[in-house]
Design a protein around this nucleic acid. Structure first.
Lengths: 117, 117
DNA sequence: TGAATTCGGTACGCTGGCGTAACGATCGGT
DNA sequence: ACCGATCGTTACGCCAGCGTACCGAATTCA
């Protein structure tokens, strides 16, 4: 009855495994922890989101955010927009594609929860 | 009352965000989805775990597993061992360091759940 | 207006992961 | 003892991310 090896366990790790395995098996891009954290920060916390703000929130250097925005932007999961109030700032905005991606991810977690319950 | 922007929401995505942000802020290595899925598969499903088995389970090519084992092994999170019954096989085994890492990750998810509840 | 500050991005050299294709080692069957 | 199949790894050329340092644009304040 080792909880670390019990597939039917309610251990949160089992849920994470189920969800991640499903994500890998799907065609979803193989994002890093940092990239996923940025994406979720943009979509589940209220705007505005700036490069500096995200860097501070995650405790990483600015170029990390800049590069992640390049990649996530190329995937169409979010979008940059100049702040017209203060043109030094970049506002990170949501996209339809990003919302769809995270909606599917939410479903995937729900399915994992059902399977690992 | 947009659930996508409600920090106190019980949306599973908010929990994931909290957990991932905490992981990024900690000194934990920035693993990819694939790497984390492999690690969790080894630690939350019963052995034995082989390269081919993990590749099939995740629906990826063998070299993906081989390289991930290199990296995760270098981090001390798991270990390779030759199968003496059939020396073609490699058995992926757990390590103390890996168990500690996942235990901390579990705590981190629990803390995130408390914060995002 | 001129200097100092703030913001985001880029350059650099390096490391690590990718997919495909090939490889050596090991096993099973005849 | 051979031959074919299976296992995991490695080679290849390529692309993405790293941390540090620096850059230009925009803003603030004296």
């Amino acid at each position: 009855m080792d909880s670390m090896t019990d597939t039917a366990s309610s251990d949160p790790l089992a849920l994470w495994r189920e969800a991640l395995v499903r994500s890998v098996r799907s065609e979803a891009p193989d994002l890093s922890t940092r990239q996923m954290a940025i994406l979720l920060a943009v979509y589940t916390t209220p705007p505005p989101h700036t490069v500096r703000g995200l860097a501070a929130e995650l405790g990483v250097a600015k170029p990390v955010i800049s590069r992640a925005l390049d990649t996530l932007g190329a995937l169409g999961l979010l979008r940059r927009k100049r702040d017209e109030r203060d043109r030094r700032n970049v506002l990170v905005q949501r996209t339809v594609r990003g919302a769809v991606f995270l909606s599917e991810f939410r479903d995937l977690v729900a399915a994992a929860r059902a399977a690992a319950a």
